[in-house]
Design a protein around this nucleic acid. Structure first.
Lengths: 192, 192
DNA sequence: GATACGCATTGATCCATGATAAGAAATTAC
DNA sequence: GTAATTTCTTATCATGGATCAATGCGTATC
């Protein structure tokens, strides 16, 4: 599955075979079972993950014990607790495996090496950060302005692959509605 | 009011008088009246703003014509449409003046010069970006897990200066409740 | 194949918040 | 200082979504 990663890099940044070879040294392949927790709340996040197969997610647990999902990451997506990783401070959320998952990971030193070997990676990183910021902004706005049904429609339109493979209760958690509500929303939409 | 900015810099990063003198050249002082729009939806955001007096905000207008506030910036706060600024793409939101406001601004070239003159500014920038990301994440989570009342309490606790000087309808817009609801929430809290 | 567990559905009920409208209070403009 | 706007409050009613509870369905376990 490592090729998923190298293919990704080749697509995203100009990179020579020689550079690629060096970069490969910096990333470690890992395989985890569904349910495996990669980052605990309060730990300092040491790694950035790139999923090559399967699905990871980040989530919080609120005072009332409820889970709220912040991000999903399927094949070709990055996931991390960026602020914890970058500031070396305790993580605000968990990261775990929604499915059996294969991914590559690197730590801060790896990232820095990566940037040294391929300067264009800095630019890629910048873009990834902006994407992440934008996506949180958009999600916030959707909560300020749209109903559960509208958010669901927008979700399946934006992430068809996720809509297909994720259990509904996880989609509900991501959307900020109860599983019961999502079930009703879907029923409504189906009968129209 | 320029001294507000230079004082900020001196506090945040190690900087010599000489460096400061050069950096000052890169930032332009501006003064705008309440209501003045600094960034229009769809424009590419050219500047990053640092407020020295007054208050700016960023906001979106949804399909139904309602405003939703993303950020406020009072004295010593930065504000910009970071994604538009960084990616040179059309802005997703507006920026305008909530009060008569004085600020300093710089464009991308200015930022780059700034980083060249004071390398520590890069680190400051990184931190600012992480703060911004974290704040959007926290706000999203608050919408996933908390009631209007809880969000209000958290707001006045986190930003007392904002709670004091902003019109309630703006706080309501930021919190994602109607002004009527916020009025009720406040009444409830007062009688307890 | 029987059992059990997690997930999705459905129904009944409740509640926080939205929508609307109208009046009070405060601010701004002339 | 008065009129005109804007903001805030209050009241009533409507509703989306939460909660609670029960049932069905599918799939993993032994």
């Amino acid at each position: 599955m490592f090729s998923v990663f190298t293919d990704y890099l080749k697509e995203k940044i100009p990179i020579t075979d020689e550079q690629l070879k060096k970069v490969e040294q910096l990333f470690r392949t890992k395989k985890v079972e569904k349910g495996k927790i990669l980052l605990q709340l309060g730990e300092v996040c040491q790694y950035t993950y790139f999923v090559t197969n399967g699905c990871l997610r980040s989530y919080v647990i609120d005072d009332k014990g409820k889970e709220h999902i912040l991000q999903f990451a399927i094949e070709n997506w990055w996931i991390s607790e960026q602020v914890s990783f970058s500031n070396h401070e305790p993580a605000m959320y968990f990261i775990d495996a929604v499915e059996d998952t294969e991914f590559v990971q690197t730590d801060e030193q790896g990232w820095n090496e990566f940037h040294k070997i391929v300067p264009a990676a800095l630019e890629m990183n910048r873009k990834l950060q902006m994407n992440s910021l934008r996506s949180f902004q958009k999600r916030l706005v959707s909560h300020l302005s749209a109903s559960g049904e509208e958010r669901y429609l927008s979700f399946i339109k934006t992430y068809p692959p996720l809509a297909l493979r994720l259990p509904q209760k996880m989609i509900a958690s991501y959307l900020g509605v109860t599983p019961e509500s999502l079930s009703r929303i879907r029923k409504e939409l189906a009968t129209q």
